[in-house]
Write a protein that binds this DNA or RNA. Structure first.
Lengths: 204, 204
DNA sequence: CCACCAAGTAATCATGCGTTGACATGATCC
DNA sequence: GGATCATGTCAACGCATGATTACTTGGTGG
């Protein structure tokens, strides 16, 4: 039913007997399908086909569909804030946010990590990972905004996280325009205003 | 597998031979399960059980699972902005937003309409409805904010929509705290600042 | 060259779930 | 009170899909 070629990935060269390569190919295909279609609408047969690999190898390398999903999900936090911290200061924060939200900064990952992070298999462990990743993202925003001045500083930082999540969803999943078409440059001004408004007068 | 009693709805009185009532019961159960579990993880058997109704009646009243989903979805726009417009003015906008985002204003609907609206069955018609509903919500925000002063006023209004979507997702689906626990009152201040910052100095 | 093991393949199983059609039953009207 | 139709019940089918097992292939080390 849903075996449309969602990725243009299959049919690589005659890559034979390369365990690491098949693992990578499976992960890439899984990421793509899970992100675009969600957990349930992603079938292992389609993933295997995209990767140009036999279905049974998914069991060999990842144990189960859930295992494959978790493996694909485990990569996302790296792409959220990167390992490095955010730059300090409001203006830099707004710029970093607008780039992360609107740019194709996800090129390496292939899809939008936030959307992948929001995908749900029903597993509680997955929900925890998601919560942790977004909480960490919130912490980074809080730090970048210059420490905590207001008592609700944490709440305000998480509102920025929520904004990020909402923008990702509305752009990629919903396709609301003009938001979906906005470039990082067009987003920068409004986001700057939000950050300034939300975080209030600099505390330092 | 997923036949936990997600709603406490079954086993009403001996309501026998009341077509309208069974339709209503089915819609309520469907709304609940679709919103919490999504399209695929919602089984018709569970919906029927929740409603205390025979499985085959879903076919009778809604034709198919897709039909049931669309019927449940068709109710959501009513609960987004209500039929009435938003109150005019920035402060009123912020207040309305914070109430809609954090309050149990969804009591009548039973679940959070935004989350239901984000659920996907894969049907293109559904995607259109979702886009339309959110676009309409954006239009209302734009009007409430006092017409269009800036050239990117539309974009800014949609950013508020995205914020609403993000807050709904992060609160109900992700459970990020303290955001998830915040009361409408606690949300009001930060939201007011966002609205003021985003919409800039009043144009009138 | 042979033996061995990882890598890959093919076929099948098991089952959850949407769908369907034939049947039962209660109300309403003449 | 019986005909009739809407409402509700029951049992079953068929298919998609995740899982699994037995088998084949190819490279590598002795």
């Amino acid at each position: 039913m849903s075996s449309d070629d969602v990725t243009g990935q299959a049919a690589d060269g005659p890559r034979r007997r390369d365990a690491a390569a098949t693992r990578r190919a499976l992960l890439l295909a899984a990421r793509t399908r899970f992100t675009r279609l969600g957990y349930d609408r992603t079938t292992l047969r389609d993933v295997a086909a995209d990767a140009g690999v036999n279905l049974a190898l998914i069991k060999r390398y990842f144990g189960s569909k859930e295992g494959l999903f978790k493996a694909a999900l485990a990569e996302t936090p790296r792409f959220l804030g990167g390992t490095g911290e955010f730059p300090r200061g409001r203006a830099a924060l707004a710029e970093a946010l607008s780039r992360q939200l609107a740019a194709g900064a996800w090129a390496e990952f292939g899809e939008h990590p936030v959307l992948m992070l929001l995908r749900d298999s029903g597993d509680e462990q997955v929900a925890q990972l998601r919560r942790r990743a977004l909480a960490e993202f919130g912490r980074q925003v809080l730090e970048a905004s210059g420490g905590s001045s207001a008592p609700d500083a944490e709440l305000r930082a998480e509102l920025l996280v929520a904004l990020g999540v909402g923008v990702a969803v509305v752009r990629s999943a919903v396709g609301l325009r003009p938001l979906a078409d906005a470039t990082p440059e067009e987003l920068l001004g409004p986001l700057h205003d939000i950050v300034e408004g939300l975080l209030g007068p600099p505390s330092d």
